[in-house]
Nucleic acid binder design. Structure first.
Lengths: 232, 232
DNA sequence: TCCGATGTTTAGGTATACCTAATAAATAGG
DNA sequence: CCTATTTATTAGGTATACCTAAACATCGGA
């Protein structure tokens, strides 16, 4: 068998399956379908089935899998997934704060390196950064013990009531969208006022002083998460 | 085909073949034999032949290979090999200086990460370090343009004449040996006096004030390189 | 409830990078 | 100079992680 180049036991590919199951399953750890995984990972559905069977059949299974009923992470799988997410977010923070990367480049580099850094590397950059809890996108960084801090945030697109919010995170998968949004003031920490609306209505947003209509489909694509602010 | 996880075109495995050919070929770029490569890479000789054929047959060949006559790097191969060596040595320097790694741990981490960092990462850590020319082991760092600085150093084991030298580099492949040698003052920058000897004789070494006999086989294993010092 | 659309799995195949065993070429000793 | 040993190559096989195409479940609507 070919040499393992990872600092730990699993492969890069497996890491990515676990991460995808973690994020698609959401905080309630809903079963994830093959199709959803196939789309997320840009892999044929048949390949997903194959991999899931292998992950479930392992000595120490990383997922719980039942034919035609989707997958969930096992506790071992969740541990590894959270470790990889921790790596990703620490690396992003490090690239941004220590190596002065432009914000829109941190994701791609982190996506590659997250699989290959050692425990020591993880520990050292965390120490250098003062054990940060959120990354430059506003995402919480899982703890060393594999625990994801509770996020009291909600999707912008889920909010119908209107009110004042702080942007908690802006998803970092598409560099262009991210940059555009940032240029418009849509970035973690920014304050934002929503007008009440129905699910189908366009969204109106106040950022700082200026009020502009906001295209909901873009918010959908970018997965903007916000935290309600108590008026005081 | 499986997704490329490297920032550049080639694979981790290919990188390692190129690096091995570079170092085994030496500064004069002697043809390297399959056996030598097989040993260095801990891979069966048959696998070496296979890989060399592929590397030589590529659209843009990375090696010049003739059956039964060994390999040399092509200019493209040499460029990539030097790039990987640059990555390795920059990463080691970075781990040591910025992340406070213990010296004996930098090699393993660099060996893994060297294949996966981007041009940007390389450039950023080089800048952070002030574009260093030698790594913590005393090895020269190839330039961005893929040029290896001339090393006026020689193998400790090749020196028969005796004289005063500065240790230029101590090879970093075996952590234990490295640590032991360092504990005995054998580290880059240390001054060292050799007594004249024959190839088979034990070696006598002065480090600072103390003179001790030195086991040549250990020097052989560790590939200690030294630079002659003009007495003044 | 049955039936077709959708989603999922099985079957069979590709490329990479390894392996072992058998064969062939080069080199060195008598 | 010819054989014996060493070194290198070919042939055939494994595991991983993908693929396509065909078969098979599940689910929602008539």
């Amino acid at each position: 068998m070919p040499a393992r180049r990872q600092a730990n036991g699993s492969s890069e590919s497996i890491d990515n399956y676990l991460k995808a199951i973690l994020t698609l399953g959401g905080p309630q750890e809903i079963r994830v379908t093959s199709t959803a995984l196939a789309e997320r990972l840009s892999v044929a559905p048949a390949s997903i089935t194959n991999m899931l069977q292998k992950l479930a059949a392992a000595e120490r299974p990383l997922v719980e899998y039942e034919r035609h009923r989707g997958v969930r992470l096992s506790s071992a799988g969740k541990k590894r997934a959270l470790e990889v997410v921790r790596h990703h977010r620490l690396i992003e923070t490090f690239l941004y704060q220590v190596l002065d990367y432009p914000i829109e480049e941190v994701h791609e580099e982190a996506e590659r390196l997250e699989h290959f850094i050692s425990e020591r590397f993880e520990e050292r950059i965390a120490a250098k950064l003062g054990h940060p809890q959120i990354d430059p996108h506003g995402h919480f960084i899982p703890t060393m013990e594999g625990h994801m801090p509770q996020q009291a945030s909600i999707r912008l697109t889920e909010v119908l009531a209107g009110g004042t919010f702080v942007i908690h995170s802006v998803d970092d998968r598409d560099a262009r969208t991210l940059r555009e949004l940032e240029a418009n003031g849509i970035k973690p920490g920014a304050k934002l006022k929503l007008k009440p609306r129905t699910p189908t209505e366009a969204c109106s947003v106040n950022i700082g002083r200026s009020a502009k209509p906001f295209d909901l489909s873009r918010a959908m694509a970018a997965d903007i998460r916000i935290v309600p602010v108590e008026k005081n």
